[in-house]
Write a protein that binds this DNA or RNA. Structure first.
Lengths: 134, 134
DNA sequence: GGCTTATGCTCTCCATTAGAAAGTAGGCAC
DNA sequence: GTGCCTACTTTCTAATGGAGAGCATAAGCC
């Protein structure tokens, strides 16, 4: 929690952020990056290195081609991945993380480990909640 | 990257995950947790401690009441927040993070700091991309 | 007795978005 | 020619998100 407060550069006295402009930008970045597909693709590329379009889709699993194209394009725009087109027939396009993408993947690492460690607690909590209300 | 690989408990040789069942569950958890509003609410509660409904909405900013209710309910179901109803008029309901929620907030801390540190790089990358294609 | 205020939640309507499936391009094997 | 391969692209439909109104409740005021 201390860490989180530090991270947001907040004023503990007022409970408000020092710079609302910075806050807005951070929220915007979070809004883009905290996307299910972005996280999943990031993780796939971090784990498997450079991969081509179809392979990324298979590794992610359950993503439509449209979302795959869209998300990869957005990640390319944000400088998270590099798109390499090999002008051959049939077409071959490879994607790999940039340095920026790698650092983001590392930042998300804590969330992955958290998810793995706490799956049971979440399932338990869910079952308890549903038993109470559902 | 090493860290990420470790996180997913993968087989470096095959590039596949050891247990597809675990992978599916982790992906499911990530799917829920890697939500813009979940992350934002988590951060607000981590930074400001226990808060009531309207205050959470104000602190998050730009969230509709429907989404606020919905996301808080889901977080409660997943055991991330505790919902305390004070039977007074007008109604007063307070939300605070559970231990589980706190640990998740800490896990996300790295992403926040990453976002703050790399806003400039993202904006630069975006401008370059848009200059090239847009 | 009404009228206002306050709060957390719900409901309804409309815009945006995600997903499934079919289509496109273009060289190559048959 | 027919079909294949791959990375998209388009189209159509289903799901989701957001804005705003409504609801329930009761104290406070006139």
């Amino acid at each position: 929690m201390t860490a989180v407060s530090t991270a947001r550069i907040s004023h503990p006295e007022t409970g408000e952020c020092a710079d609302p402009r910075v806050e807005a930008l951070v929220n915007d970045v979070i809004g883009r990056v905290a996307d299910k597909w972005t996280m999943l693709i990031l993780e796939v590329l971090a784990e498997h290195g450079e991969q081509r379009f179809t392979r990324v889709g298979d590794l992610v699993g359950g993503i439509s081609q449209k979302m795959l194209t869209q998300t990869l394009r957005q990640m390319e725009r944000d400088g998270l991945v590099v798109r390499t087109v090999h002008p051959v027939i049939p077409p071959k396009v490879e994607y790999r993380l940039t340095d920026l993408g790698v650092t983001l993947a590392e930042a998300f690492c804590g969330v992955w480990t958290w998810a793995e460690k706490n799956i049971d607690r979440i399932e338990t909590a869910r079952a308890a909640f549903d038993g109470r209300k559902g």
